[in-house]
Design a protein around this nucleic acid. Structure first.
Ligand SMILES: [Zn+2]
Ligand SMILES: [Zn+2]
Ligand SMILES: [Zn+2]
Ligand SMILES: [Zn+2]
Lengths: 161, 161
DNA sequence: AAGTTATACGTTATAATATAACAAATATCG
DNA sequence: CGATATTTGTTATATTATAACGTATAACTT
């Protein structure tokens, strides 16, 4: 996964440095939204005196490259589950793709969608009034299937089963 | 406008107190997104020793009543432009309606939409995977018609023309 | 009206998130 | 190599938000 990201960056002429790679690894390992300061704690295992700007700069890079997304409602970051797909990855252009996120308040899990219909509906509605969308944030909060049907899989921060 | 909000609250059995009314007035007067600490400054004109919890509690109430919205990308608040419409106002139910926001990076203006198609697209996409949406955040950043066609109307914080 | 409960507000302190500014190190390219 | 651009280290601070607890006000019940 990290190697794929590296190859993508090389193809784009951007540099996935050791630091950025470390941060990306931490985000991907978590498998759920992680706050910048949690990442900072994790980072300090390898980089003793790391400070907030260290992690925020790495996050900025990863966001630009579309390797991660920021969940605004949680002030947290998740790995992109689409960027490495053949259909989405490309060398040039504006890297962060439009995405939609489903946040389950039961188990904390976040699902990333890449739904053309939602994007279309948004663009249609805005074009009517002359607005040109450059970036969009679409986040829904609710209950995932498992949590609704009573099979909660609380893969939460505390790891409680 | 404030009086309409008051009538709505009375009909719902909630209390638009003087403090909450003051904060709502500040948000509506601004006509654009305002941060909590800007509101706090404004509030201090009337309430000398106001502190953060004062304004955040008022904002929480106004959000619950659907009288204002929070723009997540800006950590700022705007008055709802639909809640007082006859078609939207009602005494019971879950007050904060689904809304979409267009944020112009040119002039800072924010437009609120209440577009059924967008909501539908979102609900459709989520139902497929068993997810039940309770609340949604839809925010688009880009350029409004005026800013695109070169007639920027920078009604910004600093008031610079 | 008096007593009781619930709601709202005041106050202090602190948590959590994010950036500014500048110096030092490292990579890139002619 | 030497010039240039990019990345990282470091310190300090800005911005946004909440915890905790006591007091005041409103609403409800005898
Ligand atoms: Zn993605
Ligand atoms: Zn769940
Ligand atoms: Zn609204
Ligand atoms: Zn504009």
């Amino acid at each position: 996964m990290l190697d794929s990201a590296e190859r993508l960056c090389v193809a784009r002429g951007s540099r996935l440095t050791e630091l950025r790679r470390l941060v990306l690894g931490l985000v991907l390992d978590a498998g759920r939204p992680v706050g910048a300061y949690d990442l900072l704690d994790g980072l300090r295992a390898d980089k003793k005196g790391a400070a907030p700007p260290t992690v925020y700069r790495a996050l900025d890079f990863l966001l630009e490259q579309g390797l991660i997304h920021k969940i605004q409602r949680l002030s947290a970051f998740v790995g992109c589950t689409h960027v490495l797909d053949a259909s989405h990855a490309h060398a040039g252009g504006c890297h962060p793709h439009a995405a939609q996120f489903l946040i389950c308040t039961g188990c904390g899990q976040v699902t990333e969608l890449d739904d053309r219909n939602i994007v279309h509906a948004l663009v249609d509605a805005t074009r009517d009034i002359g607005f040109m969308v450059r970036q969009s944030t679409v986040e829904a909060e609710g209950l995932c299937g498992a949590c609704r049907t009573g099979s909660p899989v609380p893969a939460r921060a505390d790891g409680a089963p």
